[in-house]
Amino acid sequence: MDKKKKRSITRGAILVVLLAAIVYTVYSSATNDKVKVLQVGDKAPDFELVDLYESGLNHRLSDYEGKGVFLNFWGTWCEPCKKEMPAMSRQYATYKDQGVEVLTVNIAQTEFEVKKFLESLDVHFPAVIDDTKVVMTAYNINPLPTTILINPEGRVEKIITGEMSEAQIASYMESIKPEQE
């Protein structure tokens, strides 16, 4: 009887392992494009890019630990990016003193275009240009705009693709605000 039971368990185990292999295969090929993408809860990949205005100032993500980081990817050709920028600028002015940093990453455009664009919108927040698209690759950014909310522990809190309203921006910044001691 023992032998019989053992055999049943062996068979069951083999079938379960094989079934798991199939499920894994189907699942990961169905989500093939998504597995590589950053997930909520992941450690946000570190990067360092030079400030648009001050060539001596580098923005390194890990330097902002303890602060919430509102990481926004954009391009001048992207209409919704343009629309959400003034709201971001206004909310940044409010949340700046509460420990929320805004960092906007332009995708490989020229300094001239980026500066003229930001000037014409009269927006004020730190901006960097991702010349080699390395940060874009690391964060697997596809549609623009994409905003990554990074909490004070350096983990991804939320990934937002598409345009945000001012109220949304405010609530997002609120959500990554470090707790006041």
Partner: peptide, 22 residues
């Protein structure tokens, strides 16, 4: 070849090969 049902078919064939061999 990326469809779930095709992969399940191949997987079932693999199970059949393994189980029948054992």
């Amino acid at each position: 070849y990326s469809s779930w049902w095709f992969q399940i078919l191949v997987g079932m064939l693999a199970i059949s090969i393994i189980v029948a061999s054992i």
